[in-house]
Amino acid sequence: MRNALLIACAGLALSIPARADRLPVPADAPPSFKAECGSCHLPFPPALLTAPDWKRVMAKLDRHYGDNATLDEKTRREIEDFLLRHAATKSRMAGAGDPPRLTQTAWFRREHRKVPDPLWRDARVKGAANCAACHGRAEQGSFRGRELALPELRKRERD
C-alpha cells in the first residue's frame, strides 16, 4: 500500500518539468535572438512551444500577431535554429492559433488557471504575452510564485 503510494508520487513528480519556475534563455542564444525577439516583447524561452510551432512562427514573420517583424534570411535562420534546438517535445506545450501562441498551450493555461480574466486586460498587463508585468524576474528566467509583482496575485498564489 505504502509502496504503491510512493510509486504514484514518483510518477507524478516525473511528469512535472524539473523546475517549471526556472526558464532561463539557453546560453547558446545568438545575440540576434535578444536583439530581434526581445525588443517588442520578452525574448520568450524556446521551451514554451514545440518545434512545429516555432517553425510556423518563423515562417510568417511578415504577419507576426498583427506586426510585420520580417528579418533577413540569415538572421531568421539563426534564430529559428536556436528555437528548434531548445523547443519543447511534450504535447501539452503545443500552441494553438496561426501563428501558434505560447499563451494558449495546455501547460500555460493550467499554470495560469488562477489568474482572473480582467487582470489579463489590466493596463499594467495588456495581455498574456507580457510575462514581466507579473513575473518581476522574467527577464532573468525566473517565474517563481513568490516573485509575482502584482500584490493581488501573490495573495492568490498563497490561497
Binding site: 517588442c40 516583447h41 520578452l42 500577431y65 498583427g66 506586426d67 499594467r124 498587463v125 495588456k126 495581455g127 504575452a129 507580457n130 514581466a132 508585468a133
Partner: peptide
Amino acid sequence: GQHAVTGKA
C-alpha cells in the same frame, strides 16, 4: 513608454 500591444517597457 510602453508597447501598445505587448505592454513591454
